[in-house]
Design a binder for these strands. Structure first.
Lengths: 193, 193
DNA sequence: GATGCATACTATCAGTTTGATATATAAATG
DNA sequence: CATTTATATATCAAACTGATAGTATGCATC
């Protein structure tokens, strides 16, 4: 067998912060906005994970920061990636099997649809469809945060999001009857591998 | 405005365990198998969350358990849902906006594709496609864990999984060139809302 | 002119979840 | 005979979530 990877670097919040910094200096606040606008849709992170991540990165010498005083506003801690940080990022990007996890209260709930009223089910479905529409609309307005926003990777990912959201909409619209009607209905969309 | 929900019950591991118990008594080990076979694909949970969840549910009187001795094997703690537990589950199922979250190291990594070699990118993509194939194959063998496995909800959710996995495969296959070729290529799949 | 809200910035904390590990026995696999 | 798999429990460090807190300015709204 091939030797196990010496020191596995996960694609976690720390690593994504490192990646953002390859595009230029930024504060924790800047990164939070970036997570909100784009990354957060497939890799959520709040202050509770960003600030500790930056603190750990700084402690390990993977980033440096300088405190920039501002007039009328709190000081900014502006972070920069170091050479050690770049090396660590490279390690993380060499993991050949990154995960793609879903945690869906929605699907878990639908498993218990037989314990719900039709009214409850319809409300949940309608809300989910509305949410998907908002998401698609948001993607159309494309608020890319990275300076190099037009890079192939982010285009691929945005297209991915658009495609998945549209697919979900279609599946839900065409199969929602299954959940509320008591007579036997089959899946309307059959899929070949 | 409508009064805020008195005591928000989240659709968390505790609640899913309650839901599983509406189908009959089960041990933590049984539930883990159920998470592994079906639920885990869209709502993962390991021993580290299942056992504490059951302990909390028992402490709050939402489930009861009896220890069943076995020959040659460790004792089983067999759990049953109580009336209070059923009421709690009903509360959780009345939440009209259950979440659907994605956490994708894969997409995060693809955002930094410009920092990777074509070889690295292709390996990641190939692995992801293989993973999706395994998932689709697994769904075709349908190891439903609930006695009432043929209920509409689980059928809807299984179809959902199949549809999403096939969509992902298609998107990745048709757009992977974007990531590795240096000349400008556009998305091959355009989607209307 | 006051009250509240949005923006800009930092940071912490309780509760949950993750993923690995520990313990113990038996059966099957190589 | 050694290893792995299955049956069952449980715990722990590290990470993450979502909310909250503090502090200062400006901008509406009442």
């Amino acid at each position: 067998m091939p030797a196990a990877l010496a020191d596995d670097v996960a694609m976690d919040v720390k690593t994504v912060c490192l990646g953002m910094l390859t595009d230029g200096p930024a504060s924790g606040y800047d990164m939070k906005k970036c997570f909100e606008s784009t990354f957060g849709h497939f890799f959520p992170a709040g202050y509770g994970s960003i600030y500790p991540a930056l603190a750990t990165l700084a402690r390990n010498g993977l980033v440096e920061f300088e405190e920039v005083p501002q007039e009328g506003k709190p000081d900014r801690k502006v972070y920069n990636i170091t050479d050690a940080g770049r090396a660590e990022l490279d390690k993380a990007l060499s993991n050949p099997t990154p995960t793609h996890k879903v945690r869906s209260e929605f699907l878990a709930m639908m498993c218990f649809a037989h314990l719900m009223t039709d009214e409850q089910i319809n409300e949940v479905i309608d809300n989910k469809l509305t949410e998907l529409d908002s998401f698609l609309k948001l993607l159309d307005e494309l608020p890319i945060c990275q300076a190099d926003g037009s890079n192939k990777g982010t285009q691929f990912v945005a297209g991915f999001g658009r495609f998945v959201a549209s697919s979900l909409k279609r599946y839900i619209n065409e199969n929602r009857d299954m959940l509320t009607q008591s007579d036997t209905k089959d899946l309307k969309i059959a899929v070949g591998n």
